[in-house]
Structure formats: C-alpha cells, structure tokens
C-alpha cells in the first residue's frame, strides 16, 4: 500500500527510528511500511496519522482497494 510517511517524515525532520519510538514500533516496521512491503494495522495507521496531525486517508493511499 502506498503512503506519504517518508514525505511527512522529511517534512517534520524525523528519522525512522524517532518515528518508530514515537508510535511504539520498530525502525524495521517503519521501513517496511514506507516501501510498501508491509501494511500497517489499523491501530498503527491511526497512531502514525495522529502523530502527523492527519487523517488515515491523508497518510495512506487506499485507491488500490477501491472496487474490492
């Protein structure tokens, strides 16, 4: 699933490690989400979106799931 986490991270001048610690996960998980290898669970997606002050839809791109 595509997302804007990398761009948002750069905007907030955050490292993957810092974001991971802030949302209670590991750096490896953030890396996998950013490159689209792993889809975050709803609670984690909510935490990430909330951390950046955005809605889940603004951070994650659900266009792939339309029509399912």
């Amino acid at each position: 699933m595509k997302n804007n986490i990398k761009a948002l991270r750069k905007e907030h001048k955050l490292s993957q490690e810092e974001l991971a610690l802030a949302v209670g996960t590991t750096r490896q998980t953030i890396t996998s989400i950013e490159v689209g290898k792993y889809t975050a669970s709803l609670p984690l997606a909510y935490k990430i979106a909330k951390y950046f002050g955005k809605t889940i839809e603004e951070v994650f791109d659900f266009s792939d799931m339309e029509g399912i």
């Binding site: 996960t25 590991t26 998980t29």
Partner: peptide, 15 residues
Amino acid sequence: IKELYIQEHDERTIA
C-alpha cells in the same frame, strides 16, 4: 523497558 516492550509487541515481528 520501553525498548523491550516495543520489541515484544512490534506488529511486524508478530506477523
């Protein structure tokens, strides 16, 4: 403790 908690509860590791 926080580091250990994150390691144990990391959802990607669980998956």
